[in-house]
Design a protein around this nucleic acid. Structure first.
Lengths: 167, 167
DNA sequence: CAATATAATCCAATTTTTTCCAAAATACAA
DNA sequence: TTGTATTTTGGAAAAAATTGGATTATATTG
């Protein structure tokens, strides 16, 4: 075994791959290990507002939903409540990481995230699980992140300048 | 058996199908399993204000109705109360999921939801049950949901920007 | 450069879905 | 009532799709 990454550090790094002909994505050995350790491979896939697919251990997802549902007073009794149920219900699905480390993306999610058979994808570790992005979308997201970061840095510098000048 | 996904996660995902010649809809194996587990296949069908058919476990439906009626102080003693009774009474019907996972849509609901024999339909998991939509109606609904979400996300980003600029 | 591990492709078995048909139940009319 | 027609329900067989595994190719590491 190459893995047993000595580490308690789970779900990190990024991996490029391709969606296979049946809409499946193969995870790296390390990621599979992480999922096995955390939840015996029982995961939930769902569509993130950013237009990618999240893969979380089932428990993590449940907890997330429980919080959200707690806010809805009478579940199913209002338009808003039903919409929330619909939004998550329709785009979530329980899955098990296969013995060969593959996850099948349901059609809804393929469409939602632009992850059609043959497309290039990025599997991104997000500490509590992974996200699967269409390669081009992830690139755009990364650009955004870095640009925002650069802005912030510049701001802070300007701030300092201003302060030291006025003293 | 393919399923037994160990899952605590019920009624999720989306499935496309067609209303058969007799006004029946076939549910996926997973959905049937969920209903059997939750309520032995005893469900209530009723028309949602959104123009789709909801299929909830009988218990869930009862609970929902109890809440609504509880708010109306004297059941049956006001126009509003009688209307609510009428609205749900006339468009709800108990049904049992058949052994092959089919539900028959009463004619009232076919008309109400545009789910005529031969029409394309979507069966949508909503965590507490499923909804059956005419395919085109659901597409519109999903578009709405995602558009609203995108707006909200954009707002949040703008908000952040504004804050960091003013500081 | 060889050995090992990782990734992609292909194929076969199983499962699922669709279509079609038969039986049962209901309604109708003579 | 009794026979006939019609609708409804359930099931079986055929078609299609999914799943998992095995094989082959590619990359990595020592």
């Amino acid at each position: 075994m190459k893995g047993t990454t000595a580490a308690m550090l789970s779900f990190c790094g990024m991996d490029s791959c391709r969606v296979d002909g049946a809409g499946r994505v193969r995870l790296t050995a390390a990621t599979v290990e992480d999922f096995l350790r955390r939840c015996d491979g029982e995961v939930v896939l769902f569509g993130l507002p950013e237009g990618a697919v999240a893969v979380y251990p089932e428990e993590v997802y449940q907890e997330m939903r429980r919080r959200e549902l707690g806010d809805l007073d009478a579940v199913g009794a209002s338009f808003a409540a039903r919409r929330s149920l619909r939004r998550f219900g329709s785009m979530a699905s329980a899955a098990k990481i296969s013995r060969q480390g593959r996850v099948t993306l349901p059609e809804v999610l393929q469409r939602f995230a632009g992850l059609f058979p043959g497309e290039a994808a990025k599997v991104v570790g997000v500490e509590i699980g992974v996200e699967i992005w269409a390669a081009d979308r992830f690139e755009a997201e990364m650009d955004d992140i870095l640009r925002a970061e650069k802005n912030k840095r510049q701001m802070e510098l300007n701030q300092k300048e201003a302060v030291s000048h006025e003293s």
